[in-house]
């Protein structure tokens, strides 16, 4: 039996996803490698040691992290600018959780989904989901806003010591320390969200992972998981 497939995203978007994922992997690896102070360290102590020894010092790690971070942010920004109408606006419109009502709905969805993994809450009613389900929307919002914060704070962390005389104005250092906190905290928040993202992609919904390679998704999968989207596709005659 051949599954009926439908193209849901183009190559550029797929490339961007994997580019983003690769950047994240490298930025996390290097970022955790920079900070070795026990009081501020995020990763286990062996990690900065390993990374810095491999790189021959912390300076190259810092440069790598900073430069890659800027490349990452610039690439995504460029992509967003060039594909604003076609990809980005529709995506943001779908994914951003902006009101408390939707947030509550998505949170409920997420909780129930989570409980069902353990065979619980079988009777809870879940409203039908669109292209992105509640959990995806929450994660998407987290990633979009988080990335902005991470990029901005990261840019300050990387560039400010090179450009601003910290000794001349205590505000520069104050801002640096806040940026550091925001940077780390946001990375953690996103990282936490990425765990279910990866779990679902790898374990629960291999089709979704597959679609991030081919760009195609089985129509049945959509009908099952995203009935509202299915309807929409149907209405617009794409199915």
């Amino acid at each position: 039996m051949t599954e009926r497939l439908i193209r849901v995203r183009d190559r550029r978007t797929i490339a961007l996803h994997w580019f983003n994922a690769a950047c994240w992997a490298l930025l996390l690896a290097s970022g955790f490698g920079i900070i070795s102070g026990d009081d501020v360290r995020l990763a286990p102590a062996f990690w900065p040691g390993l990374v810095q020894n491999l790189a021959g010092g912390n300076a190259p790690v810092v440069s790598f992290h900073g430069v890659l971070g800027m490349v990452w942010a610039a690439s995504i920004l460029a992509f967003a600018l060039f594909n604003l109408r076609r990809v980005v606006r529709p995506f943001l419109a779908e994914v951003l959780v902006l009101t408390p009502v939707t947030a509550w709905r998505d949170l409920r969805f997420t909780t129930v989904t989570l409980l069902r993994l353990f065979g619980l809450a079988k009777n809870a009613e879940l409203p039908p989901q669109g292209r992105y389900n509640g959990a995806q929307r929450l994660l998407g919002t987290l990633i979009v806003l988080g990335s902005v914060l991470i990029a901005l704070s990261g840019a300050y962390l990387f560039l400010a010591p090179k450009l601003l005389p910290f000794a001349a104005n205590p505000l520069y250092g104050e801002l640096f320390r806040w940026a550091l906190m925001v940077h780390a905290g946001t990375v953690f928040a996103v990282l936490t969200g990425l765990i279910p993202h990866i779990y679902f992609a790898v374990v629960e919904e291999r089709e979704a992972l597959e679609s991030m390679k081919s760009g195609q998704l089985p129509v049945d999968f959509i009908r099952h998981h995203n009935p509202l989207w299915y309807e929409e596709l149907h209405r617009s005659g794409k199915i």
């Binding site: 102070g37 026990d38 912390n58 810092v62």
Partner: peptide, 9 residues
């Protein structure tokens, strides 16, 4: 050293 976020200390 423990409080340094840059790995400088």
């Amino acid at each position: 050293v423990e409080s340094c976020p840059s790995g400088a200390a």
